[in-house]
């Protein structure tokens, strides 16, 4: 069985700054895979490499057995065209720290946009599924509201519904609760918990250690562009082996 995500010695630099210095890991289908670490450790950058929002400088990244962003032929790498990269991203949903909802569209239109434009679904079918998805994240009564009329937690739940509308096989969460007021964090985590229960493969960059411990199947601690420690959340969070992990956890737990 191939892993849903396989990362082999992934490197990434922004100019002279090396953000990722060799990431090796595997995410199995159906797992909730948590990435924790201090800011600047490269965890968000790694997440963005998985759907090619960032280009990898060295190493290989595979999603469901397919190389991300390139085609390998006779030992040579060919860059994919814009259209081909877009096609690869269809199966990978992403939820951002700052929601990034489209402000000129209602909640339902946000969810319908990709099915209409990318999958060429009919408007009626897309609308019907958008309403069902919004209902699933508990926003049945907000379908015709604009993002500016929603709270942060509601916006993030719309963003999750928008990503789910493309029926992805993998969901990436980039600190989905970091921009939320503390009292709104729970409603977003509840939706993510439901999603995990339904068997969605999820990679979650998070500072919510409680969520990672409860829902996560595996967890890695990253620092300065490398994976310092990995294992089950219970082991890594409860019994860290490395000093860096210990000092980080002592500050956040």
């Amino acid at each position: 069985m191939t892993a849903m995500v396989k990362s082999e010695a992934v490197h990434k630099s922004f100019g002279p700054v090396e953000v990722l210095r060799g990431i090796d890991l595997e995410v199995q289908a159906g797992d909730v895979f948590c990435i924790v670490g201090p800011s600047g450790s490269g965890k968000s950058t790694f997440l963005r490499c998985i759907n090619h929002l960032e280009k990898v400088n060295a190493g290989r990244l595979y999603v469901d057995g397919t190389l991300v962003g390139y085609r390998e032929k006779n030992g040579k790498l060919y860059e994919l065209r814009d259209r081909e990269v877009a096609a690869q991203r269809r199966d990978i949903g992403m939820v951002f720290q700052r929601f990034n909802l489209f402000p000129h569209m209602t909640a339902a239109e946000n969810v319908m946009e990709a099915p209409l434009q990318v999958k060429r679904e009919s408007k009626a079918a897309a609308r019907k599924r958008a309403v069902a998805l919004l209902e699933r994240v508990g926003l049945a009564d907000k379908t015709d509201n604009y993002p500016a009329q929603l709270s942060g937690g509601q916006q993030q739940r719309v963003a999750i519904a928008r990503a789910l509308a493309m029926e992805p096989k993998l969901m990436l969460f980039d600190e989905p609760t970091s921009a939320l007021d503390p009292e709104l964090v729970g409603e977003v985590l509840d939706v993510m918990r439901d999603l995990a229960r339904d068997g969605m493969t999820m990679i979650v960059v998070t500072h919510e250690m409680g969520f990672a411990r409860e829902v996560g199947d595996s967890l890695v601690f990253m620092d300065e562009g490398i994976v310092v420690e990995s294992g089950t959340p219970r082991d890594v969070l409860g019994n860290p082996q490395h000093d860096r992990t210990k000092s980080f956890l002592s500050k956040v737990l």
């Binding site: 929002l53 877009a86 991203r89 269809r90 992403m94 990034n100 909802l101 489209f102 990709a114 434009q117």
Partner: peptide
């Protein structure tokens, strides 16, 4: 227009052209 808008539409699998026409220009 915030760069996050383009990232969001790209992450959904929209092409650059669709992004420009549907997401960026209206804003």
């Amino acid at each position: 227009v915030d760069e996050g808008q383009t990232e969001a539409s790209q992450a959904l699998g929209m092409t650059q052209q669709q992004n420009m026409r549907r997401i960026v220009l209206p804003q």
